Amino acid sequence: MNAFPFFVILLASGIQAQVPFLGKCPVVNEVQQNFDVNRYLGTWIAIEKYFTIFEAGRKCVEAVYTASDNATFSLHNQMTGMITHKPFTMDGYALAAGLPSEAKLSIHFTSPVPFVGPYWILGTDYDSYAVVWSCTNVIGFNIQLAWVLTRDRNYPQEALDKAHAIFDRNNLSRKMLYKLDQTNCPKYN
C-alpha cells in the first residue's frame, strides 16, 4: 500500500479520534438500556479518557448537556489550556442513532470545527458516573474514543470502579485511559 493514501486516511480519521486499533470495531456487550435522557442532562466532568487531539493540552474538561427541541440534547464542552489557561469550548448536539431504548447517539459538533461521530453511553447510574465510547472503522483498523465521566471533580472511588467494570465487561482496553487534570479549575458559566 502506498504510504501517502494511508497517511491521508489516518489524518482524516485523526480529526475524529486518536487511538487506533487493528481490525474492525469491537462488538460491545452492553449499551445503557432504557436510556433516560432527562436524568443524563446536566454537567459531567471528564475524569479519564483516551487521547484526543481536540482535548490535547487541556485540563478541567467538562460537558454540559441541556434539553433541546430539535435533538436528543444540546452540548457545550468547556476546558482550559494547561499552559495558556485560556478557555476553549466546543458546541453541538446529539441525535438518537439506535433503538429508542438504547443510548446509541450520534454527536454533531458545530463549532469550532464541524464533526459528526458515534456517541454510545455504555453505562451510567446518572448520578455519579457514565462511560462514553465511540468507534469508527477505517481501512484495516478502527479508531476509538472513550471517556469516564463523573458528576463531581471529587468523585467517589466506587464510581470509578463501576466505570472500569464496564470497560472490562465489554473487553475494551483500560490501558489507553489516562487521568485528566481537574485541579485548580475555573468556574465555568
Rank of each mutant, 00 (worst) to 15 (best):
A146E: 01
L149A: 10
A159T: 05
S134L: 08
T72N: 06
H85M: 13
K49S: 09
S13Q: 13
S13D: 10
T124L: 09
F21A: 12
Q18G: 15
R39H: 00
K24T: 13
T89G: 06
P100V: 07
A103P: 08
I47C: 03
D91S: 12
Y129V: 04
V19I: 14
E158R: 06
K59E: 08
N29A: 03
K179W: 07
T110M: 13
C25I: 10
K24A: 15
L145W: 08
S111F: 09
F4L: 15
L177F: 06
V64M: 08
P114E: 06
A97Y: 08
F88P: 00
F21P: 03
P156S: 05
A56W: 14
T80S: 07
E55P: 05
G57N: 11
G23C: 09
L95V: 11
H108D: 08
Y93R: 14
S68H: 06
S134I: 05
I139Q: 01
W133Y: 10
D168F: 08
C60Q: 00
M176L: 11
Y93L: 13
K59F: 08
T52R: 12
A12E: 07
N34P: 06
A67I: 04
D36H: 01
D168R: 11
L149S: 09
V132A: 15
D152L: 01
V37H: 01
D181K: 05
K179C: 04
N154F: 09
H76L: 15
T124H: 07
N77A: 11
C60W: 01
S101R: 09
K59G: 07
D69E: 15
N137W: 05
Y188I: 04
S128Q: 14
N29K: 03
N189F: 11
F109K: 00
Q157H: 11
I83N: 10
P112D: 11
T124M: 09
P20S: 04
L99V: 06
V8T: 10
K24P: 10
I15R: 12
Q157Y: 11
Q144A: 07
L75S: 08
T72L: 12
T66H: 04
N189H: 12
A46R: 05
